[in-house]
Design a protein around this nucleic acid. Sequence first.
DNA 1: TATTGTTATACTCTATAACTATA
DNA 2: TATAGTTATAGAGTATAACAATA
Lengths: 147, 147
Amino acid sequence: MLTVTPVNEDTAPRLRLAIARIARQLRQNVDAPSDLSTTLVSALATIDRAGPLTLGELAAAERVQPPSMTRIVTKLEGRGLVSRSIDRDDRRVARVEITADGRRLLQRSRTQKTALLAQRLRTFTPEERAVLEAALPLLERLAEERR
Amino acid sequence: MLTVTPVNEDTAPRLRLAIARIARQLRQNVDAPSDLSTTLVSALATIDRAGPLTLGELAAAERVQPPSMTRIVTKLEGRGLVSRSIDRDDRRVARVEITADGRRLLQRSRTQKTALLAQRLRTFTPEERAVLEAALPLLERLAEERR
DNA sequence: TATTGTTATACTCTATAACTATA
DNA sequence: TATAGTTATAGAGTATAACAATA
């Protein structure tokens, strides 16, 4: 017997709405630690995660045009959160790397965001938390980038 | 015996990251239907959901300053997506309401976003979908606004 | 006077086009 | 010539301050 397994037609819209709202709250409540905009924090996090990157690679990763990334990096550099260095073999290329200060700032930002969510999770029963934890790997699969 | 029920220390950060990423993808892939920016779509959705609202209420709901909301509403009105009307009893007050065109545009936008998510859900096994659906009410609780 | 909304002005983020330096 | 990055310029979104209309 062939079993067709349709997606419950309610699931996708409800999931979409819930995710959009949670993300918005996280953003509104705790973005811009030390006055850093979302843009700057996001770029900084990418530099941290993906290691030294050229400006072009960084622009692609952040889905921003190169001139925008020039400005972003200039600001981050001005605050001492990243350092820029010129490639010795090809002097057109600039590489960007996070500094210790940059890493500390990211750490603070993450802690704040996580705290908000953790606080809400504390209002859940152990059973509820177990359900959420079971779904977590699936949410992580949904989150995987694939374009 | 007292049972302390600590939140698994990994859950909050993983959930935060997964949600932020899914939300970002949904935004990047399908926001701005008919060239409308996220800002405009968000305001329009609030007007739709919460019915006729004054500019001030709307500004508060969207967490924007009144002058910003004046501009947003002016743009939406220019496109025929909302209509504005002056309160008869207190003529300082302006109320904003969604139009049929506005409702149609929102509908299209939601359909697109849901489609992307539904497509990904189709790659899940029935068991996996069941796990996700079980977690959905909990995510919805997390999404509830409480400030 | 107090309140609702608007106009004036400035700053951030982003883009495209034109440019510079290097290959 | 082609490529990596920058500078010039413009548009959207937002904010604060000052203002107008109404209560």
